[in-house]
Simulated assay, not measured.
Amino acid sequence: MVLAFILIGVGWAGIIIYPLAFVMDAIPAQNAGVYQGLFNAQVCVPQIVASLLSVLILPLIGNSLPTLMLIGSLFWIAGTLAVGLVKLK
């Protein structure tokens, strides 16, 4: 069980770090701080908004776990495809 949780932590660290590494590789070094801040805002603000609006959204889709999993999977696939739009140096 401990090994499983360690591996979950390693996976979570990768989820957090890899998108930022892609952004840092695709931007000029002199603007790195600005781009990091904007990237963080693009990650955090939608999470905050979704959390606040979930009280309104969940009843609209029927509080159905399969529906929630489908919506989450579609967004996951969209995010995966969007990585291909990042132009690395």
Rank of each mutant, 00 (worst) to 15 (best):
M1P: 13
M1G: 14
V2A: 08
V2M: 14
L3N: 13
F5S: 14
F5P: 07
F5W: 14
F5N: 14
I6K: 12
I6Q: 14
L7T: 11
I8F: 14
I8M: 15
I8L: 15
G9S: 13
G9Q: 14
V10A: 13
V10K: 14
V10D: 08
V10H: 13
V10L: 12
G11Q: 09
W12S: 13
W12P: 11
A13E: 05
A13R: 08
G14Y: 00
I15C: 10
I15P: 08
I16Q: 12
I16Y: 06
I16M: 11
I17T: 14
Y18Q: 14
Y18R: 12
Y18V: 15
L20K: 03
A21W: 00
A21E: 10
A21M: 00
A21L: 06
F22R: 12
F22C: 13
V23A: 04
D25R: 15
D25E: 15
D25V: 13
I27N: 07
I27F: 05
I27R: 07
A29C: 05
A29G: 10
A29D: 15
A29V: 15
Q30L: 00
N31V: 02
N31E: 10
A32Q: 15
A32K: 15
V34P: 10
V34K: 13
Y35C: 06
Q36C: 04
Q36G: 04
G37E: 03
L38K: 10
L38Y: 14
N40G: 09
A41D: 00
Q42H: 12
Q42P: 05
Q42G: 11
V43N: 01
V43Q: 00
C44A: 08
C44P: 01
V45N: 02
V45P: 00
V45I: 09
V45M: 07
P46C: 00
P46N: 03
Q47L: 12
I48N: 00
I48W: 04
I48M: 01
A50D: 03
S51Y: 03
S51G: 06
L52I: 03
L52V: 05
S54N: 02
S54P: 03
V55R: 06
L56A: 12
I57N: 03
P59A: 04
P59H: 02
L60A: 06
I61K: 02
I61W: 06
I61Q: 02
I61C: 04
N63F: 08
N63A: 06
S64P: 04
S64K: 10
L65Y: 09
P66I: 01
P66S: 02
T67Y: 07
T67A: 13
T67D: 07
L68M: 11
L70M: 12
L70S: 09
L70F: 12
L70Q: 09
S73D: 12
L74H: 06
L74T: 08
F75Q: 04
W76A: 09
A78I: 09
G79L: 06
G79E: 00
G79I: 09
T80K: 08
T80Q: 11
L81E: 05
L81I: 08
L81T: 04
A82M: 11
V83Q: 09
G84M: 03
G84T: 04
L85S: 04
L85K: 12
K87R: 13
K87T: 13
K87H: 15
L88E: 14
L88I: 06
K89R: 15
